[in-house]
Design a protein around this nucleic acid. Structure first.
Lengths: 129, 129
DNA sequence: CTTGACCTTCCCCTGTACTGGAAGGTCCAG
DNA sequence: CTGGACCTTCCAGTACAGGGGAAGGTCAAG
């Protein structure tokens, strides 16, 4: 299977697959005599795995770590658990930060909804911020 | 006042202020005969405003829009209200996405905490993702 | 035989908010 | 007069995940 077909089946683009190969997420593909990349049908599984990792919020570098462990013959289970735990902490922090930001922006917007915008002090740029 | 002093008073760095000037957030500064930037003391207010905008989650481009409106002589109040409203929507969407991501990562991690990691199928890279 | 779809490598570009460093000029204290 | 702190400009790079487009090779259909 050539790269365009594989991309189509995996729901991505040829350009992205070349990028993944260059980043070490996909092993260098076999080539046809004319130099075209030639993939086995199960290559789509690896790309699906990359997509699942992305859906879990992992970076390509983290996904590559998992893939490297798997490719070296060992089981990446523990590493995956650690990554997921770390990712959870990050997500919780991000949610906490966004919630705090949400509250302060609500306060600002409520102040900005207050009538009497004519009282702006030209020296202050904007009395709402 | 020279750039280093202004940076210190505004709680940032000279490099950042030059960057802001190049991005149009600060007007081109006056220069001393030897070419040094020379600021009025109230320049710090404009930098504080930029910081408050950032604290509200606005991008430098959005802050520059507000500053441009103010610099053109009109009142940016309505524009600020619109920006804050739009920002609120974005924040709420981000929180919703992160919450959904959180739940699915929790599910993945719980599955990964399940004993019997020896049953991994080598063809699947990792049974947890 | 030609056309169009597909493939190859290559390098640069996107957006965000800076940061680092080189090469050189200025200012002030000792 | 020299050293160090400060300033100037410009070039380049950071992280992230690709995208754009050039210049050229390959393949199958009509």
């Amino acid at each position: 299977m050539r790269i365009g077909k594989l991309a189509q089946r995996a729901g991505t683009r040829a350009k992205t697959l070349r990028f993944y190969e260059k980043q070490g997420l996909l092993p260098p593909a076999d080539r046809t005599p004319s130099g075209y990349r030639d993939y086995e049908p199960d290559a789509v599984n690896r790309i699906d795995f990359i997509h699942r990792g992305q859906a879990a919020g992992l970076t390509l570098a983290q996904i590559r770590q998992i893939l490297d462990i798997r490719d070296s013959g060992s089981s990446p289970c523990e590493h995956v658990r650690n990554l997921l735990d770390a990712r959870l902490c990050e997500i919780e922090q991000q949610i906490a930060q966004l919630t705090a930001l949400h509250d302060s922006v609500v306060a600002l917007r409520d102040a900005a909804a207050d009538p009497a915008p004519a009282t702006c002090d030209p020296g202050l740029v904007c009395r709402y911020l």
